[in-house]
Design a protein around this nucleic acid. Structure first.
Lengths: 350, 350
DNA sequence: CTGTTAGCGCTTTCAA
DNA sequence: TTGAAAGCGCTAACAG
């Protein structure tokens, strides 16, 4: 560790530590002569401020914590992190990154660590437990949740999944599709409406409503949602998408388009379509959701874009704002989804 | 900020701060009675240690810095980060994340910030400037470079690109392919051998050597490497892969297999192949490199896997080891590449 | 077994 | 315009 202290610089320049501190932060009165001597001493000694000492003294760390869940491999989370880091860096904040890997217990520990490190704010890239978020609020530290809203006392950055899915359906309907299938994640109908399960539910609701509004009868055969729990380790993943598409092809052979509730599911579907020799979009149109690796697929996938970078950016900005400004009502920022049309959608039979 | 100090707990328990500290860290002698009283006081007061104060006092932050470059969107970097975080967390370390976005200047600033924050070590997920790495070494802080070795005084975690590419070629050759194309990134032949450009060069060298060893004549027409600089904003990307494959198809129509120097390039190639109606692997085999989104493609891409998680994990572990252990020679850890066979490779004309 | 005390390196009154 | 000095909250001798 670099051992040059402010005291050493002061000695070298023949002034007090207070004076050095003043020139360091350019505040208070310092004579030109003294300033010059200090600046020389600073340069010659290769002084580097000790941020830890300053943080202790000022009781502010200029740091925010970012908690995410294993799925950093998930491109969604990745972009959120990039956005958050970007916003933080712009304001001179550092980012402490923790991965709670989907576990509430571990999330709790991350929160505790972050709190004892005295971060100024914490961003949850999707919290697992509302209690953990509440803990942050209770500690008087700015808390921001992304995507899911588990703790009403915390600020949040959300997105309207219903809107997004609606855009996708509108696109398909406008192209002239009538028989449209749905591949998605399960959500126990019976279960109370958690914000969590709501994501899947709202995407599905938009699908069903769009069909109804178009005067199309709702047909169970067009939907594969796997109402079983995370079995065979593949839930919500690539294999699931592939398997669902297979089922769809068998159950509803007259489908001309499919709406997949995530890019991952869509990627799996595309694999089945490729294997079965069903040309996309000629014989089947496909729309995904997220816009993660949609552009990489063959053909490039039309999808609903979640503004991931923006969400991360806003969340971090919000956290930083909240540090100083504390208002009564925790703000809820909404980000807009948008449809990105690429090459998997066309008129039926085109 | 939670205002409960060790002093408050001590007062409440009727002991000195030293005793509280002792029970907190479970060292030194503490009578059962005192311990109990302190533990009660700890619980009742909701005490949370102030890590900043401890860090200042102990002159150790139990934190490592992680510098990466914009390309967190790059799944490669992502996995490295996950691995590094994992290793750090396992050892009780926190991770401070900075994005220098490919810029040496910004990288310099990240280093300075990290150094003034007194991190115990810094991991460069590919450093931009060797001087910046050297700065860390000079400050007496553990430095580890991933993938690229720019500073001989720092430790590093590397991978053998030649080996990896060789695996890919071996696979293709063993399947019986003879006319094998190459799509890759350019590397100015003329330029001095930087470790940087070496990555592309070594992958290509393996391609050429494998062909030679198989007794196949080297044919320029089978190679598209774009010896032009990053023009049209698409260098090394998806569009590049698509365009290169198009050229390859025109230049060397008798190719039965192609080795793409990255998954991204391969994804682009797959798009062209799909558009042209060239079935994979029936009429064309394709191998990628990296194993990032290879499994998501249709068909799932056979590729050379870089152990990204492992590299990140090892880098962070190495950094942490170096913090205590400091040996004369900075260690260089090598990770092995491995071929992952999926569905884009088969015997020619199968 | 326990308490006192001297800092860690910095900022910031306060008085000169 | 400057310096002395009092902490920020914690740890670790050292003395008892």
């Amino acid at each position: 560790m670099n051992g040059v202290r402010i005291k050493d610089v002061a000695a070298k320049a023949g002034v007090s530590t207070a004076t050095v501190s003043r020139v360091l932060h350019d505040n208070g009165y310092v004579s030109a002569a003294a300033r010059e001597r200090v600046e020389d001493a600073l340069r010659e000694s290769g002084y580097r401020i000790n941020a830890v000492a300053r943080e202790l003294r000022k009781r502010r760390t200029i740091t925010i914590g970012l908690i995410l869940h294993g799925a950093l491999s998930n491109p969604f989370v990745t972009e959120v992190v990039v956005g958050a880091e970007h916003a933080a860096a712009e304001q001179g904040f550092s980012v402490l990154l923790f991965n709670a890997r989907g576990d509430a217990e571990r999330e709790y520990e991350c929160v505790e660590t972050l709190l004892s490190r005295r971060v100024d704010g914490i961003v949850f890239t999707t919290a697992v437990s509302g209690d953990n978020v509440q803990r942050v609020v209770d500690a008087g530290v700015a808390a921001v949740e992304i995507e899911r809203r588990l703790c009403p006392a915390a600020a949040s950055v959300v997105v309207d999944n219903y809107d997004g899915a609606q855009e996708a359906m509108k696109h398909l309907l406008e192209l002239g599709h009538r028989r449209i299938g749905y591949i998605g994640e399960p959500f126990p109908e019976a279960q109370a409406r958690h914000e969590a399960t709501d994501i899947a539910r709202r995407r599905f609701d938009a699908y069903r409503d769009a069909l109804r509004e178009a005067g199309e009868p709702f047909d169970e055969a067009c939907v594969v949602r796997g109402d079983y729990p995370r079995e065979q380790g593949g839930w919500g993943g690539l294999e699931t998408g592939a398997a669902y598409m297979d089922r769809l092809l068998a159950q509803a052979p007259d489908l001309t388009a499919v709406f997949a509730a995530s890019d991952l599911l869509a990627a799996g579907a595309l694999q089945t379509l490729y294997a079965r020799g069903v040309r996309v979009p000629d014989r089947m149109s496909l729309v995904g959701f997220d816009d993660t690796f949609a552009p990489h697929l063959a053909p490039p996938l039309s999808t609903v874009r979640q503004p991931m970078f923006e969400m991360g950016f806003k969340a971090a900005s919000l956290a930083i704002t909240l540090i100083t400004d504390d208002r009564a009502e925790p703000p809820v920022e909404r980000c807009a989804m948008s449809l990105v049309v690429r090459a998997t959608t066309a008129r039926p039979g085109a």
